[in-house]
Design a protein around this nucleic acid. Structure first.
Lengths: 339, 339
DNA sequence: ATGAAAGCGCTAACAA
DNA sequence: TTGTTAGCGCTTTCAT
């Protein structure tokens, strides 16, 4: 493999000059620079980013830590779309992305800090992390610049990107109320996700605002999983025939609810309105298609990468970026016919 | 940041001894090793993988080049699932994955070889690459170990992973014929995908075997895109009311066909049978759910990573891994009622 | 405008 | 068992 040493030898200059010429420094005569570039091309030279990283102490890579990058995530294209956004923005800024192993048992031994330091990434993006993940504490303690998706932590060089989940939930629940619904249950995700807490907050606030009594046992836990939501909904719907609408904290869970309703011969939306959250691809294709609170997942990733790099460049004061969400009305909601 | 030099100083040994102790070499007394490990922990040492890569000339990273890692790919969870498989296998083998920028215009300037050499990746996995992509030639020419998904090229340290596309197509078309269909069109993808060529081959072979006349203009080009397939199907179905079944080279295109049929008030499957390919998540949720040739996308990725690492270790003779595909029968196919 | 030399953090002969 | 030394490929003072 060609090195600048080889180029220097062939071009008859010092390695210093080669380095300078190739990096576009001004203190190299045009003639020398051209000569060097020629030789470099001739010798098929590729700079060694590893060596450069070592000496510059800048790797031009940012790490990506996805908690659940598994087949589960495939249904839910959330992770993938976020990844696309990150990838695009990172590419624009001429960084590369390194995907960390977190699901391997062997690797889980390594702490977050170790993982990042070893690879000398300049910063990290965390996605899909639960609020009780030990990594989260480390993020704050460590001095590694970091952006977290959907968990509101900030600090020195630590920021986050999220959508306004309270607002999203409010929009959904208010829409149901406007359709005449009063008996509205919520299928929430596990409490270890920050978004669950926020969406619940929005749900509760909206009921209160509309003077609808809150029933704690109408807040179900579907664990963000389709099957779990189906199971829970099955039980709930059987025992609460008066419910007319369910607000779900994810589309996947809404799909589960749809299945449960079908099993019980409850027609959606005429007998039961269902709203999801996220606007995953399936939402549009489900039968009936899902009314949902849409998040721009790609944008979340794009902003996360952008924020991180701003953090690295120290030209960022605002450590949080909150995106808008909007209600997408489809076929799974309708006027309350029981009213 | 702590280095082995610091550890050496504190522990009162040479840096060599530290290196050896930390890397588990046997020629270090247990006492010294323990002492060194203690100090390392105390000083919160993390090895510098960059420095190690430089000196060992082994980066323990493999590069991932995805041609179309964009929002488009989200519907089609293909890429993501392959990625999951790669990620898992790579993690097991203690490598990290680096995602290359290919979609950025600025980066497209860099050749494949440059990209890989710069980062000193030990090998590369290529996914979603078209047969006319200039990168593909480079793969053969360059000496960088590489595994390509779904393009059958082999060479020194170059292999590929794919499913048996001829066989998959045969299964699908034979199934249609067994249902009594004789007028079977094919919605193919663009010819720049190897899988298109193979699936077409399977389609043609099966018709021939069953002595069904082949009509070249019954092979449509949906470009692997839903909208394009819909458009093409709309036109075709209008002009060929006698067609009773369409075999599609991807589920996404099958979805497009479904839409076209709906527009024309052609009922699926009673008036028209549709088979897809891939078994993407949507296939199951579409209405009607899609009969399709299922590929284990996760396994493709898993095998690709495994093959690459075997190639690196030089303990691999077989440079191709072909996975089985199987027909998943759902609701979009039925007996030919016109027979 | 160019070069000599030091050093980034680490591994690996070679010596002792 | 341990230490000395060289060097991976590059950037960067500091001279010239």
């Amino acid at each position: 493999m060609t090195t600048i040493k080889d180029i220097a030898r062939v071009a008859g200059v010092s390695i210093t000059t080669v380095s300078r010429a190739l990096n576009g420094y001004s203190d190299v005569s045009e003639k020398t620079r051209r000569r060097i570039q020629e030789v470099a091309k001739e010798l098929k030279y590729s700079p060694n980013a590893v060596a450069r990283s070592l000496v510059m102490n800048r790797s031009k890579t940012i790490g990506l830590l996805v908690s659940e990058i598994s087949r589960e995530g495939a249904k839910d294209n959330f992770t993938f779309e976020v990844l696309c956004g990150i990838n695009d923005r990172v590419a624009e800024l001429d960084y590369d992305l390194i995907l960390f192993n977190t699901n391997s048992a062997q690797q889980k031994v390594k702490s977050y800090t170790q993982l990042c330091r070893e690879r000398r990434v300049e910063g990290v993006i965390l996605q899909g992390i639960k609020t009780d993940d030990p990594y989260l504490e480390e993020v704050i303690e460590s001095d590694i610049p970091c952006v977290v998706v959907d968990v509101p932590i900030t600090g020195n060089k630590v920021g986050y990107v999220s959508t306004d989940n309270v607002d999203g939930a409010k929009k959904a629940v208010q829409y149901l109320i406007d359709l005449g619904h009063q008996q509205i249950a919520m299928m929430n995700g596990h409490e270890k996700a920050f978004v669950s807490q926020k969406r619940k907050e929005g749900y509760l606030a909206t009921l209160e605002q509309n003077e609808i009594p809150i029933k704690e046992d109408w807040i179900l836990n579907g664990e963000f999983r389709e099957e779990q939501a189906e199971k829970v909904a099955l039980y709930f719907l059987r025992n609460h025939p008066n419910v007319t609408a369910i607000f779900c904290a994810s589309d996947l869970m809404a799909l589960g609810v749809l299945k449960a309703a079908k099993t019980l011969n409850i027609r959606v939306p005429s007998q039961l309105s269902v709203i999801g959250y996220d606007d995953i691809v399936l939402a549009e294709y489900a039968t009936p298609s899902l009314t949902t609170v849409a998040q721009d997942k790609y944008q979340i990733g794009y902003e996360a990468a952008g924020l991180l790099i701003d953090l690295l460049a120290e030209n960022e004061t605002n450590n949080a970026r909150i995106l808008k969400s909007n209600l997408k009305i489809r076929q799974s909601t309708d006027f309350n016919k029981k009213a």
